[in-house]
Design a protein around this nucleic acid. Structure first.
Lengths: 329, 329
DNA sequence: TTGAAAGCGTTACCAT
DNA sequence: ATGGTAACGCTTTCAA
C-alpha cells in the first residue's frame, strides 16, 4: 500500500502538496498537479481513510443497528439506508441486536469506538436507555418518547384503513388481533383499527396475541377458528401472522376471500407471493430507510431540519384476500 | 470523549502505563493498575479504535459484499457471518453490489481504504477480476475458478437429489428449468438434475430460462403449461421461480401435488409459508455464512487451514408440493 | 516497574 | 505556489 509520502517522493514534491491536490484545497500549480496525479496513478495510491479519520476526528461511517436482518421487514429498510449513504460516500457498519438491551448497548459502544458519525437504529427497548444528549446524532426507526429524531410509519392510520377496507368489503364479524404489547407500531395499528371498528356497525372480537412469530400465530389461528367459527374478516398484526392465519383457514377449507377476508400489515416481499396473494397495509420500508439516512446526514452536517420526526404514509395494497368492490365503494 | 492522556493524568501515570494495563502487556504494579482502572472507570474511557487501527496497521473490520440483501437468500447468510464475527470481536462493513462489476470494485476499494482485515463476498462476476495475490484474505461464497478460498453448497448433488426425489415420487414427464447461464450454482443444479434424469426412464423436457426473477418466471410458467400441458413434475432453478410456477399451476386449477409436483432450490424462509408449502433442496445459508466467517478468521490469523474450499451439504426438505411415499421408497 | 518519545498516514497551519 | 511540521490517539521500543 503506497502512502502519501511515496507519492510525494515519486512526484518530487512535499506531502503537503500531495494533500492539497488530493483535497483540492489551496493553491497548486497546474504542472505540479499533473505530476502528482501521475504519481498517484502510477503507484495506484488511494488515501488511508483510517489516518484521515484519526486526524479529522470524523469518519464516513454510519452504524446501523437492527433487531434481526433475518426478519423480512428489515432487509428492505437496510437496503434503503445503504443506497442513500452510498450516494453520499458514507459506509455502513452493521449489527443485529435481537431486541436485547445488552447487545444493543454493546453495539452502540463499538460504533462509538469506531468513530461512526451517526447511528440509525430500530429498537423496541426505547425508554430503557436514555439517548438524549448523546454525543453523535441518532435516528430511530420508530417514534421516540423523548422526541429524538425518528422516522416511522403511520400505524394508527394504517389500523384505521385496514378496518375501513375490511368493513367496506362486507365483513360483518371482524376479528382484530392485538399484537405484542411492547411493540409500538403494533399498538398503534391496534388502536387505529379499534377506533374505526368501534365507530362502525359491525360486530368485532379482539384477540390478545403476544408475538409476531409464525409458530405462535398458527396456534392462535386454530383457537380462533374454534372459538369464533363464523368470523368473516381478520385484521392481523403483521404479514407473518396473516400468513399463518391464511394457512390455517385454507387448511380448514375456508374460501378466501368469499367466506373470510384477511388483511395484514407491512407488505413484506413474500406477501405478494402467497396464494392467494395477501391484501395488506404497506409500510414503505425501503423509503423509510432512505429517509432515515437522509435525516441522519442532515443532522451530521448540521443542516436545518424542518422535520425531526418524519411520519411515512401507509397504503392499502389490494390483492386477493379481500373482496373486490366497485369504484364507488 | 476522554483520551488515554486524560486517563494518564487522572491516574498520575504516563500514557505508556495506561496502554500497558489496557492491553495487559508488560509489567505494571498492582497498585498503579488499580489507579489506572479507577481513572478509566471515572472518565468512562474506552480506547479509540481508529487510532489503534492506524498504529497497528490492522483493524477489527471485515467487509461483506453481497449482491442484494433484499434477495431472500442473503439475510440468513449475512446473519451467519455477523454472528460469528461478533463472537470474535470483529465488525461488519456491508455493501450491496447488485452483481455490478463496477460497484463491486468500488466497494472492495473502500473496504481496503478502511483497513478491513478481510473480505467475504458473493458474486457472479467471478473471473472478470483476478483476485489472486490480493493483499488481504478474501473468502468467496461460491466456488472460484482460481482456487481462492470459498464456501459453497453442493449444487450438483442438489440437482441429483431433486431429480431422484421427483422421480421416486412418481412423476413421469418432468420439466427441468435451466436457470441463468452465468450463475454457477444454477448450472451445477442443472447439471446434477440432468445427469440423474438422463439415467432414469422418465421423459423430460428442458426449458431454457435466463433469470431468477419472479416476473419472468410467471411468464415461462404460462408458456410451459401451454406447450407441455401434461408435465407432472417441475424442477425449478430456485424457490422464487418455483413459487411463480406454483401460482400459475394453482391458477390453472392443477391439483398439487397429485397432478403436478414441484421442487425448488434454496429453502428461503418464505418457502415454508407458501400454500401449499414448497418442497425444496435446502442450502444451509446461515451455516454457510458462519463457515465463511470462520474460514476468513483463520486466514487472517494465519492458522493452518485444512480446507480452503468448503463444500456444504444440501438436503431435501419434504413439504407439500411433492407426494408422500412410504419409508421404503 | 515506569516514562519519554518515535511513529502509524493524514491534514492544516505557518513560513517562505 | 510550495514545504516543514505539529497534531490526531494510540502502541511500542528504549532507557532509566
Amino acid at each position: 500500500m503506497a502512502t502519501i509520502r511515496d507519492v510525494a517522493k515519486v512526484a518530487g514534491v512535499s506531502v503537503a502538496t500531495v494533500s492539497r491536490v488530493l483535497n483540492e484545497t489551496g493553491y497548486v500549480h497546474e504542472n505540479t498537479r499533473k505530476r502528482v496525479l501521475e504519481a498517484i496513478e502510477q503507484l495506484d495510491y488511494s488515501p488511508n481513510e483510517v489516518a484521515r479519520s484519526l486526524f479529522k476526528g470524523e469518519s464516513r461511517w454510519i452504524g446501523l443497528l437492527l433487531p434481526d436482518i433475518t426478519n423480512p421487514f428489515f432487509p428492505q429498510l437496510a437496503r434503503g439506508v445503504e443506497d442513500e449513504l452510498q450516494k453520499h460516500g458514507f459506509h455502513l457498519i452493521f449489527g443485529n441486536s435481537d431486541e436485547n438491551a445488552e447487545k444493543e448497548l454493546h453495539y452502540i459502544n463499538t460504533f462509538m469506538q469506531n468513530h461512526v458519525m451517526g447511528i440509525i437504529m430500530a429498537t423496541n427497548q426505547l425508554g430503557k436507555t436514555d439517548y438524549r444528549g448523546f454525543p453523535i446524532p441518532m435516528v430511530f426507526l420508530d417514534r421516540t418518547p423523548d422526541g429524538n429524531p425518528s422516522v416511522y410509519a403511520d400505524g394508527v392510520e394504517g389500523g384505521r384503513i385496514a378496518a375501513r377496507e375490511i368493513i367496506r368489503r362486507g365483513s360483518k364479524r371482524v376479528t382484530l388481533l392485538k399484537g405484542p404489547e411492547h411493540i409500538r407500531p403494533a399498538q398503534d395499528r391496534f388502536r387505529g383499527a379499534l377506533e374505526e371498528l368501534s365507530n362502525s356497525n359491525v360486530d368485532f372480537y379482539v384477540m390478545n396475541t403476544h408475538s409476531f412469530s409464525f409458530q405462535d400465530a398458527t396456534q392462535w389461528a386454530a383457537e380462533l377458528f374454534a372459538k369464533y367459527a363464523d368470523t368473516d374478516g381478520i385484521i392481523a398484526s403483521n404479514d407473518v401472522v396473516a400468513t399463518a392465519i391464511l394457512h390455517e383457514a385454507l387448511r380448514l377449507g375456508k374460501r378466501i376471500p368469499d367466506e373470510l377476508q384477511i388483511i395484514g400489515f407491512d407488505d413484506i416481499p413474500q406477501s405478494g407471493l402467497l396464494f392467494p396473494p395477501l391484501s395488506t397495509i404497506r409500510q414503505p420500508a425501503y423509503d423509510m430507510g432512505k429517509e432515515a439516512a437522509r435525516l441522519l446526514l442532515k443532522l451530521i452536517k448540521k443542516e436545518k431540519i424542518d422535520q425531526r420526526n418524519v411520519l411515512m404514509p401507509v397504503t392499502f395494497v389490494e390483492r386477493f384476500t379481500t373482496r373486490k368492490v366497485d369504484a364507488r365503494g
